[in-house]
Amino acid sequence: MSEPFNDYAAPESEAELAFEGALRPKNLSEFVGQTKVRTQLDLLLRAAALQGRAPDHILLAGPPGLGKTTLAMIVAEETSQPLRMSSGPALQHAGDLASVLSSLLPGEILFIDEIHRMARSAEEMLYLAMEDFRIDIMVGKGAGATSVPLELAPFTVVGATTRAGLLPNPLRDRFGFTAHLEFYEDAELEQVLHRAARLLELELSDDALTSIARRSRGTPRIANRLLRRVRDYALVHETPASGEAVDRALELYDVDALGLDRLDRAVLHGLISRFRGGPVGIKTLAVSIGEESDTIESVVEPFLVRSGLLARTPRGRVATELAYLHLGLPVPEQIPLA
């Protein structure tokens, strides 16, 4: 016999969904970190408000999880305008973009995530729309086809990209402001965690905050995710969220003291055990551990390089002395890169 529906559990799930949205700051004053970008963005939005016009188009560039989507939402909130959200992979035809642009309200904010993955035909249409606020729609086919211009209401494009180098120059030049988001310092991540813990009604000791921040790879998204796993551990085991509880919880989820996870360690172990520390090409390394080369290049490698555990050389990837020490492996007398 099936269990009856539990009415009491419904508010709990609703509370969790509400929490997901509550974690995102609602305005620039609540946004932690990225001080220079926040100052620049605040000036841009204030100037547009004083002149009674739509803000310049904004490009947000940086690694995943640093707050690009959150900043787009804040732009809409600060300008009191509606936000339309889309993504590069969803705009694979000029017609897809035309339908979005033609339905925009005056002053509306159009957020395009992963904008570098738009189709070329959509990019070319976006050039004209961003600069002249109009698009040309082709009517008919063959020799009888004609181009009909369609005027658009002024709007602001906020584009987000993790690979700014893949954006074509004509599209990049249409943005009036480009913000480069940087990885967070541990002290900034502790502020992010403190705010999230308050929303979770979770009491964290100072050493617990420091421990989670150190493992968060300079990324607020990862910090919030680890915090929720610590909360789950403390709840199930009925223990305070202390530094010791953080260590036990994150060890359970294969996150070590530097923030390396299973895939990070697999890359380093494969590089050292199978290729004697390198140098080795990224595709060969990916095949050896059964992972996609794009995943290693975009997800794993940036953090390992920034941590000094991996180096990129003209001949391939090389494990550094720090990698041997972190994994507890004997350091060879001669390594490709000291």
Rank of each mutant, 00 (worst) to 15 (best):
Y127T: 08
Y127W: 13
A129Q: 07
A129I: 04
M130V: 09
M130T: 06
E131L: 06
D132V: 07
F133C: 09
R134M: 14
R134I: 02
R134K: 15
R134T: 07
I135L: 14
I135A: 10
D136Y: 07
M138D: 00
M138E: 14
G140Y: 11
G142W: 04
G142C: 11
A143K: 13
A143R: 14
G144A: 13
G144D: 14
G144H: 12
G144N: 14
G144T: 11
A145R: 13
A145W: 12
T146R: 12
T146K: 10
S147P: 00
S147F: 11
V148R: 14
P149F: 11
L150R: 12
L150C: 03
E151N: 13
E151L: 11
E151A: 15
E151F: 00
E151Q: 14
L152G: 03
A153H: 07
A153G: 03
P154Q: 04
P154G: 03
F155G: 01
F155H: 01
T156G: 04
T156M: 06
V157H: 03
V157G: 02
V157N: 02
V157F: 03
V158W: 02
G159S: 05
G159D: 03
G159W: 00
G159M: 03
A160D: 04
A160S: 10
A160T: 02
T161D: 05
T161E: 03
T162W: 00
T162N: 09
T162E: 06
T162I: 02
R163K: 10
A164D: 04
A164R: 04
G165S: 06
L166R: 08
L166N: 08
L167A: 05
L167P: 06
P168V: 07
N169A: 13
N169P: 06
P170K: 04
P170W: 01
L171F: 02
R172A: 13
D173P: 05
D173C: 02
D173T: 07
R174K: 15
R174N: 13
R174Y: 02
F175C: 02
F175K: 01
G176N: 10
G176W: 01
F177S: 11
T178N: 08
T178G: 05
A179W: 10
H180P: 01
H180D: 14
H180E: 15
L181S: 13
L181N: 13
L181M: 13
E182P: 00
Y184F: 15
Y184W: 11
Y184I: 14
Y184T: 14
